[in-house]
Protein backbone atom coordinates (compact mmCIF):
# COMPACT_ATOMS: atom_id res chain seq x y z
CA UNK A 1 0.00 0.00 0.00
CA UNK A 2 0.99 3.62 -0.57
CA UNK A 3 2.46 5.41 2.42
CA UNK A 4 -0.45 7.90 2.34
CA UNK A 5 -2.86 4.99 2.86
CA UNK A 6 -0.72 3.64 5.70
CA UNK A 7 -0.72 7.04 7.38
CA UNK A 8 -4.49 7.32 6.97
CA UNK A 9 -4.86 3.90 8.61
CA UNK A 10 -2.64 5.01 11.51
CA UNK A 11 -4.73 8.16 11.94
CA UNK A 12 -7.98 6.19 11.82
CA UNK A 13 -6.84 3.67 14.45
CA UNK A 14 -5.51 6.47 16.67
CA UNK A 15 -8.90 8.20 16.48
CA UNK A 16 -10.81 5.07 17.47
CA UNK A 17 -8.28 4.41 20.25
CA UNK A 18 -9.04 7.89 21.62
CA UNK A 19 -12.76 7.27 21.20
CA UNK A 20 -12.93 3.95 23.04
CA UNK A 21 -10.17 4.08 25.64
CA UNK A 22 -10.91 6.57 28.41
CA UNK A 23 -7.43 6.88 29.94
CA UNK A 24 -4.69 7.57 27.38
CA UNK A 25 -1.00 7.14 27.97
CA UNK A 26 -0.53 10.91 27.63
CA UNK A 27 -3.03 11.54 30.43
CA UNK A 28 -1.70 8.71 32.61
CA UNK A 29 1.88 9.95 32.32
CA UNK A 30 0.72 13.49 33.17
CA UNK A 31 -0.99 12.18 36.31
CA UNK A 32 1.99 10.02 37.29
CA UNK A 33 4.43 12.90 36.88
CA UNK A 34 2.17 15.42 38.63
CA UNK A 35 1.93 17.56 35.47
CA UNK A 36 -1.84 17.91 35.42
CA UNK A 37 -4.28 20.42 36.78
CA UNK A 38 -6.49 17.59 38.08
CA UNK A 39 -6.24 16.47 41.67
CA UNK A 40 -3.38 14.13 42.50
CA UNK A 41 -4.57 10.50 42.66
CA UNK A 42 -5.58 9.01 45.98
CA UNK A 43 -2.78 6.65 47.08
CA UNK A 44 -3.65 3.15 48.30
CA UNK A 45 -0.65 1.69 50.11
CA UNK A 46 -2.20 -0.43 52.88
CA UNK A 47 -5.48 -1.98 54.01
CA UNK A 48 -6.53 1.21 55.77
CA UNK A 49 -6.12 3.37 52.67
CA UNK A 50 -7.79 0.64 50.57
CA UNK A 51 -10.83 0.84 52.84
CA UNK A 52 -10.75 4.65 52.66
CA UNK A 53 -10.46 4.65 48.88
CA UNK A 54 -13.00 1.88 48.27
CA UNK A 55 -15.83 4.28 47.52
CA UNK A 56 -13.81 5.55 44.53
CA UNK A 57 -13.58 2.02 43.14
CA UNK A 58 -16.80 0.40 42.06
CA UNK A 59 -17.26 -1.99 44.97
CA UNK A 60 -20.98 -1.93 45.39
CA UNK A 61 -21.78 -5.30 43.84
CA UNK A 62 -20.53 -7.13 46.91
CA UNK A 63 -21.71 -5.57 50.16
CA UNK A 64 -20.00 -6.41 53.43
CA UNK A 65 -21.45 -9.62 54.81
CA UNK A 66 -22.82 -9.59 58.34
CA UNK A 67 -21.46 -12.90 59.56
CA UNK A 68 -17.78 -11.99 59.28
CA UNK A 69 -16.74 -9.45 61.83
CA UNK A 70 -13.20 -10.34 62.85
CA UNK A 71 -10.38 -8.10 61.56
CA UNK A 72 -9.00 -10.95 59.47
CA UNK A 73 -12.47 -11.58 58.05
CA UNK A 74 -12.94 -7.94 57.16
CA UNK A 75 -9.53 -7.71 55.50
CA UNK A 76 -10.23 -10.87 53.53
CA UNK A 77 -13.47 -9.37 52.39
CA UNK A 78 -11.92 -6.03 51.40
CA UNK A 79 -9.41 -7.94 49.28
CA UNK A 80 -12.15 -9.95 47.63
CA UNK A 81 -14.28 -6.88 46.99
CA UNK A 82 -11.28 -5.18 45.42
CA UNK A 83 -10.64 -8.11 43.09
CA UNK A 84 -14.31 -8.23 42.17
CA UNK A 85 -14.19 -4.60 41.17
CA UNK A 86 -11.05 -5.33 39.14
CA UNK A 87 -13.06 -7.98 37.32
CA UNK A 88 -15.91 -5.58 36.56
CA UNK A 89 -13.45 -3.05 35.20
CA UNK A 90 -11.76 -5.78 33.13
CA UNK A 91 -15.12 -6.80 31.66
CA UNK A 92 -15.81 -3.18 30.74
CA UNK A 93 -12.37 -2.95 29.19
CA UNK A 94 -13.07 -6.09 27.11
CA UNK A 95 -16.13 -4.31 25.76
CA UNK A 96 -14.01 -1.26 24.86
CA UNK A 97 -11.38 -3.44 23.16
CA UNK A 98 -14.18 -5.13 21.18
CA UNK A 99 -15.37 -1.76 19.88
CA UNK A 100 -11.78 -0.86 18.99
CA UNK A 101 -11.37 -4.19 17.14
CA UNK A 102 -14.57 -3.56 15.20
CA UNK A 103 -13.15 -0.24 14.06
CA UNK A 104 -10.12 -1.92 12.43
CA UNK A 105 -10.87 -1.74 8.69
CA UNK A 106 -11.94 -5.20 7.47
CA UNK A 107 -12.37 -6.75 10.94
CA UNK A 108 -16.16 -6.93 10.88
CA UNK A 109 -16.06 -8.56 7.44
CA UNK A 110 -14.14 -11.54 8.83
CA UNK A 111 -16.04 -14.74 9.67
CA UNK A 112 -17.92 -14.02 12.92
CA UNK A 113 -16.47 -17.12 14.59
CA UNK A 114 -12.97 -15.88 13.72
CA UNK A 115 -13.78 -12.47 15.18
CA UNK A 116 -14.72 -14.25 18.42
CA UNK A 117 -11.50 -16.30 18.35
CA UNK A 118 -9.34 -13.22 17.71
CA UNK A 119 -10.92 -11.44 20.66
CA UNK A 120 -10.85 -14.45 22.95
CA UNK A 121 -7.11 -14.92 22.43
CA UNK A 122 -6.12 -11.29 21.94
CA UNK A 123 -8.01 -9.37 24.54
CA UNK A 124 -5.96 -10.23 27.64
CA UNK A 125 -2.76 -9.46 25.72
CA UNK A 126 -4.28 -6.11 24.75
CA UNK A 127 -5.34 -5.37 28.33
CA UNK A 128 -1.84 -6.12 29.63
CA UNK A 129 -0.30 -3.77 27.04
CA UNK A 130 -2.82 -1.09 27.98
CA UNK A 131 -1.92 -1.44 31.65
CA UNK A 132 1.72 -0.59 30.96
CA UNK A 133 1.27 3.18 30.53
CA UNK A 134 -0.60 3.27 33.85
CA UNK A 135 2.34 1.73 35.68
CA UNK A 136 5.73 2.81 36.88
CA UNK A 137 8.19 0.86 39.01
CA UNK A 138 6.39 1.93 42.21
CA UNK A 139 2.73 1.26 41.41
CA UNK A 140 -0.18 1.62 39.06
CA UNK A 141 -3.05 3.97 38.34
CA UNK A 142 -6.51 2.41 38.64
CA UNK A 143 -10.08 3.70 38.51
CA UNK A 144 -9.49 5.88 35.45
CA UNK A 145 -6.46 7.51 37.08
CA UNK A 146 -8.22 8.53 40.29
CA UNK A 147 -6.21 6.10 42.40
CA UNK A 148 -2.54 5.11 42.56
CA UNK A 149 -2.03 1.69 44.11
CA UNK A 150 1.48 0.88 45.22
CA UNK A 151 3.36 -2.17 43.98
CA UNK A 152 4.45 -2.97 47.54
CA UNK A 153 0.83 -3.06 48.70
CA UNK A 154 -0.13 -5.45 45.89
CA UNK A 155 2.86 -7.62 46.83
CA UNK A 156 1.75 -7.63 50.46
CA UNK A 157 -1.65 -9.21 49.76
CA UNK A 158 -2.12 -12.86 50.67
CA UNK A 159 -1.37 -15.62 48.17
CA UNK A 160 -2.40 -15.96 45.35
CA UNK A 161 -3.55 -12.31 45.06
CA UNK A 162 -0.01 -11.04 45.62
CA UNK A 163 1.23 -12.97 42.58
CA UNK A 164 -1.25 -11.41 40.20
CA UNK A 165 0.35 -8.07 39.36
CA UNK A 166 4.09 -8.47 39.92
CA UNK A 167 4.76 -10.10 36.49
CA UNK A 168 2.81 -7.24 34.84
CA UNK A 169 4.97 -4.66 36.63
CA UNK A 170 8.13 -6.42 35.47
CA UNK A 171 6.87 -6.48 31.89
CA UNK A 172 5.54 -2.91 31.95
CA UNK A 173 8.72 -1.31 33.28
CA UNK A 174 10.62 -2.85 30.34
CA UNK A 175 7.86 -2.13 27.81
CA UNK A 176 7.66 1.53 28.89
CA UNK A 177 11.35 1.92 28.05
CA UNK A 178 10.35 1.68 24.37
CA UNK A 179 8.52 5.01 24.91
CA UNK A 180 5.65 4.33 22.51
CA UNK A 181 3.00 7.03 22.41
CA UNK A 182 -0.76 6.62 22.09
CA UNK A 183 -0.71 6.68 18.28
CA UNK A 184 1.95 3.91 18.21
CA UNK A 185 -0.01 1.93 20.80
CA UNK A 186 -3.17 2.05 18.66
CA UNK A 187 -1.38 0.31 15.78
CA UNK A 188 0.36 -2.20 18.03
CA UNK A 189 -2.95 -3.19 19.61
CA UNK A 190 -4.44 -3.77 16.16
CA UNK A 191 -1.43 -5.95 15.22
CA UNK A 192 -1.98 -8.06 18.35
CA UNK A 193 -5.69 -8.49 17.66
CA UNK A 194 -5.04 -9.54 14.04
CA UNK A 195 -2.84 -12.54 14.93
CA UNK A 196 -3.38 -15.24 12.34
CA UNK A 197 -1.98 -18.04 14.52
CA UNK A 198 -4.73 -18.15 17.16
CA UNK A 199 -6.00 -21.70 17.74
CA UNK A 200 -9.19 -22.65 15.91
CA UNK A 201 -9.27 -19.91 13.26
CA UNK A 202 -11.28 -20.96 10.23
CA UNK A 203 -9.98 -18.56 7.61
CA UNK A 204 -6.45 -17.35 8.31
CA UNK A 205 -5.56 -15.65 5.01
CA UNK A 206 -7.79 -12.53 5.28
CA UNK A 207 -6.60 -12.03 8.89
CA UNK A 208 -2.94 -12.23 7.85
CA UNK A 209 -3.60 -9.82 4.99
CA UNK A 210 -5.17 -7.29 7.34
CA UNK A 211 -2.34 -7.72 9.84
CA UNK A 212 0.28 -7.22 7.14
CA UNK A 213 -1.18 -3.84 6.23
CA UNK A 214 -1.31 -2.74 9.88
CA UNK A 215 2.29 -3.98 10.34
CA UNK A 216 3.43 -1.82 7.39
CA UNK A 217 1.61 1.11 8.94
CA UNK A 218 3.24 0.48 12.35
CA UNK A 219 6.70 0.18 10.78
CA UNK A 220 6.27 3.47 8.92
CA UNK A 221 4.81 5.16 11.98
CA UNK A 222 7.70 4.09 14.24
CA UNK A 223 10.31 5.21 11.70
CA UNK A 224 8.65 8.61 11.43
CA UNK A 225 7.73 9.08 15.07
CA UNK A 226 10.97 7.69 16.58
CA UNK A 227 13.69 8.30 13.96
CA UNK A 228 16.50 7.85 16.49
CA UNK A 229 15.23 4.66 18.08
CA UNK A 230 17.10 1.86 16.32
CA UNK A 231 15.27 -1.39 15.59
CA UNK A 232 12.20 -0.15 17.48
CA UNK A 233 9.82 -2.02 15.16
CA UNK A 234 11.61 -5.33 15.86
CA UNK A 235 11.75 -4.62 19.59
CA UNK A 236 8.03 -3.91 19.72
CA UNK A 237 7.20 -7.12 17.87
CA UNK A 238 9.42 -9.14 20.23
CA UNK A 239 7.15 -8.09 23.09
CA UNK A 240 4.42 -10.28 21.61
CA UNK A 241 6.33 -13.39 22.74
CA UNK A 242 6.52 -12.15 26.35
CA UNK A 243 2.82 -11.32 26.23
CA UNK A 244 1.78 -14.89 25.42
CA UNK A 245 3.67 -16.22 28.44
CA UNK A 246 2.15 -13.53 30.66
CA UNK A 247 -1.35 -14.50 29.56
CA UNK A 248 -0.70 -18.22 30.09
CA UNK A 249 0.55 -17.54 33.64
CA UNK A 250 -2.36 -15.15 34.32
CA UNK A 251 -4.97 -17.68 33.24
CA UNK A 252 -3.33 -20.39 35.38
CA UNK A 253 -3.47 -18.10 38.39
CA UNK A 254 -7.15 -17.35 37.80
CA UNK A 255 -7.88 -21.09 37.51
CA UNK A 256 -6.05 -21.63 40.80
CA UNK A 257 -8.14 -18.92 42.46
CA UNK A 258 -11.32 -20.52 41.20
CA UNK A 259 -10.28 -23.74 42.92
CA UNK A 260 -8.98 -22.34 46.19
CA UNK A 261 -11.14 -19.30 46.92
CA UNK A 262 -14.62 -20.29 47.99
CA UNK A 263 -15.95 -16.75 47.64
CA UNK A 264 -14.44 -16.30 44.20
CA UNK A 265 -16.80 -16.13 41.29
CA UNK A 266 -15.49 -15.09 37.93
CA UNK A 267 -17.34 -12.53 35.80
CA UNK A 268 -19.28 -14.43 33.07
CA UNK A 269 -17.51 -12.59 30.24
CA UNK A 270 -14.08 -13.34 31.69
CA UNK A 271 -15.17 -16.96 32.16
CA UNK A 272 -16.06 -17.16 28.50
CA UNK A 273 -12.69 -15.78 27.50
CA UNK A 274 -10.62 -17.96 29.80
CA UNK A 275 -12.46 -21.24 29.30
CA UNK A 276 -10.26 -23.61 27.22
CA UNK A 277 -7.91 -20.75 26.43
CA UNK A 278 -4.48 -22.38 26.80
Amino acid sequence: PESADLRALARHLYESYLKYFPLTKAKARAILSGKTSDNAPFVIHDMKSLMEGEHMINCRQMPMQEHRRSDVGIMREVELRFFHSCQSRSAEAVSEVTEFAKSIPGFVNLDLNDQVTLLKYGVIEVLIIMMAPLMNKDGTLISYGQIFMTREFLKSLRKPFCEMMEPKFEFSVKFNMLELDDSDMALFLAVIILSGDRPGLLNVKPIEDLQETVLHSLELQLKTNHPDSLQLFAKVLQKMTDLRQLVTDHVQLIQLMKETELDWCLHPLLQEIMRDLY
Binding site: Y20, S88, A91, E92, V94, S95, E96, T98, E99, K102, V108, L112, N113, Q115, V116, L119, K120, H267, P268, L269, E272, I273, R275
Partner: peptide
Protein backbone atom coordinates in the same frame (compact mmCIF):
# COMPACT_ATOMS: atom_id res chain seq x y z
CA UNK B 1 -21.60 -20.14 19.64
CA UNK B 2 -23.27 -20.88 23.00
CA UNK B 3 -19.85 -20.98 24.65
CA UNK B 4 -19.13 -17.36 23.72
CA UNK B 5 -22.52 -15.72 23.75
CA UNK B 6 -21.43 -12.49 25.46
CA UNK B 7 -18.55 -12.05 23.00
CA UNK B 8 -20.99 -12.66 20.14
CA UNK B 9 -23.33 -10.08 21.62
CA UNK B 10 -20.52 -7.53 21.99
CA UNK B 11 -19.44 -8.11 18.40
CA UNK B 12 -22.92 -7.80 16.97
CA UNK B 13 -23.92 -4.82 19.02
CA UNK B 14 -23.74 -1.87 16.66
CA UNK B 15 -23.55 0.97 19.17
CA UNK B 16 -21.00 1.93 21.82
CA UNK B 17 -19.69 -0.53 24.46
CA UNK B 18 -22.57 -2.40 26.11
CA UNK B 19 -23.36 -2.28 29.78
CA UNK B 20 -22.12 -5.45 31.41
Amino acid sequence: KEKHKILHRLLQNSSSPVDL
